[in-house]
Design a protein around this nucleic acid. Structure first.
Lengths: 218, 218
DNA sequence: GCGAGTGAGTAGACAGCGTCTACTCGATCT
DNA sequence: AGATCGAGTAGACGCTGTCTACTCACTCGC
């Protein structure tokens, strides 16, 4: 009951015939599948994860509430597709900021900064990305985005702390710390520790703790 | 649909008349208010936070779906009351395990261990306690339970790292780390770092990072 | 060139949810 | 005894996710 009656010649007809192979294709900016994900990304960034109802997404995409079901058999799968966009964007941000020529310690600090910055600027999306009860863990694309990122962090940690036993454990602990700081930040608990809303002091403390004080090797 | 038809003479009548003062009282193991919270605690521990629907709690308490509304005007307030029980239990566990005669470093380690142990054994409750979108932050009793616990952690951190600028920031960073480790653990991401499901290695790494290696002062 | 088939989206039903409101009923107070 | 009131019931409302029946433009085989 949107523009169905005033614009009977809708354009999603023309879109449909441009991807006859269907399935994996349809990447050319049309197609309901992409539209749903795009709308979902906008919605989660604007209103948070709780706003991502299946029906609301369909409404904003201008289709009936049953339409998404053709592409996403379940609500969780649609949310997972939206979250995957978030992981992709985060990975892109990290890739864009990383300077391979910089010292490992600085690269880790930059990576951590980008991570927390993402958590701050894409708050709703960040929330969604780690609400595992809303996501279909299998379809997340976690393998393609999170894991390489973690692998990079592990390498860098190994460079900064060469003697350490298991760099993966150290990197995991550091990542957990970043994650916890973002969490505390998001629900306003930073005041308890710092009196303000800036995660930077905690980030600095965490980096110093895990990597040694800035400028010192071990 | 529980025992409603086989036990028509329900006992919540007799309970009702024993707390005539009502309101703040009713602590004597009867009373719908306490029953709802108790049922909710059992339910969240058994089935997780997503099982805590208002109607299901009412059902298990043997009352109609509208009954909780008298004591908890909104769903969030009931969940908050349930979560408060979690904070109370966590505080009790910490208090029970703490040895005031031990070295500060060991006390922190013990506290951290109790914290992660709680996250592991009371998984659903821990999840609820930090789902701030499900809780009424004001009514949480956070002031009474979390904050003293954090204050104690801050004191201990100040003792372990006497020269540091702001013990609250260090304590906050450490707490964030614990929290992040619990998170990673809960959604199975520990395998990425350790290959197993045991948070102990990450915990040890985090404690070493924030407090210095075991046995060393600074 | 025309009928069968199909892909894509619609529309309605269903059960469950949180909230609101009207009500019942037993106990208490005067 | 009769009014009052606290406590719980019952039903409605609009929302949700899922399922199913359907419509309808398009395409393909003959």
């Amino acid at each position: 009951m949107r523009e169905t009656e005033d614009h009977p010649t809708e354009d999603h007809r023309t879109e449909a015939q441009q991807g006859p192979g269907s399935e994996g294709g349809d990447r050319s900016e049309g197609g309901l599948r992409e539209r749903l994900v795009r709308v979902g990304v906008e919605l989660v960034n604007a209103e948070g994860a709780q706003a991502l109802s299946l029906r609301e997404i369909a409404r904003r995409a201008g289709v009936s509430h049953g339409a998404p079901r053709r592409y996403f058999p379940t609500h969780l799968e649609l949310l997972s597709a939206i979250a995957r966009q978030g992981f992709t964007e985060l990975a892109a941000r990290v890739a864009a900021e990383d300077r391979e020529t910089a010292a490992p310690r600085e690269r880790i600090a930059l990576l951590a900064h980008v991570y927390l910055d993402y958590a701050g600027t894409r708050r709703g999306m960040y929330e969604l990305m780690f609400r595992h009860d809303l996501l279909e863990s299998g379809s997340l694309g976690l393998r393609e985005t999170s894991l390489p990122l973690f692998a990079r962090l592990t390498e860098l940690v190994a460079l900064v702390r060469p003697g350490a036993a298991d760099p993966a454990v150290l990197a995991g602990a550091l990542w957990a710390n970043l994650h916890g700081i973002a969490q505390l930040w998001h629900w306003g608990s930073l005041r308890l520790a710092t009196g303000g809303d800036d995660p930077a002091p905690l980030l600095a403390a965490a980096l110093d703790a895990h990597l040694g004080s800035a400028g010192q090797a071990s």
